[in-house]
Amino acid sequence: MRDDFAEIENGVTEPAPSGEGISPAEAKKKRELSKYLGVTVNVLQALRRFFKKDSMPNLVLVMVLLTSVTAAGLGAVYAVTSVTIEENDQIALNKTLNDLFPGQALLFTETSEGSGIYQGRNSEGELVGFGVKTLADGFAGKGSITMMVGIDVRTQSVTRVSVMKQRETTGFSLAAKRDPFLEQFNGRSAPFVIGEGVDAIAGATVSSEAVAQGINNAFALLETEGSP
């Protein structure tokens, strides 16, 4: 780089070979050009020093580029998949809700955005029951069990309980998802107390109590917010 620069300078300062004389105007133009070229070369060299492989600016530049490209790529993947993911969630939610009222084809609508209370109406538009989503505090901590409780409007009793998501201890408390325990609640009304008409799962008392409490909460929630 330095050499190029020197050459350009020399080319200008050296007297022109005889016979092919350069007019003063041309020489001036050339000098100016060489000045600009010299500045450019200097700037480039400074930049190169600045962005040497292990220099701080280069480290920052590489990380910024890498993260930007990654983020752009992820944005593209998200754009493609998010629609399907939302659809899946909706399908799963509808299946859970419909399973609460076996044998009836109901149409569910949430009472208000984020309330977790879903009104189930039959084909005549008549309100049949509610699906109430509640969190229960299980063995794995606050809100570790997410469940949906089906409540019949006429009898004010549980139609079915479905555990949607839980992070209780694998093996033991997973049994709370199995039917025999959950079926005890069917056709009955809150409040439920473990040990008084409801049996806990052996080895998973905390999880069982959490499920019972969660169902009680669902009834309470429906009473305060969900009245049609």
Binding site: K53, D54, N58, L59, V62, M63, L66, T67, T70, G73, L74, V77, Y78, V80, T81, S82, T84, I85, N88
Partner: peptide, 26 residues
């Protein structure tokens, strides 16, 4: 650059993992 290779690797890996996560969810 040598100095930030681990951080750079983790960014690359995290990008692919998140993409796989979205695809599985979908």
């Amino acid at each position: 650059p040598e100095k930030i290779r681990i951080a750079a690797f983790v960014v690359i890996i995290a990008g692919f993992v998140t993409a796989v996560d979205y695809l599985l969810q979908a």
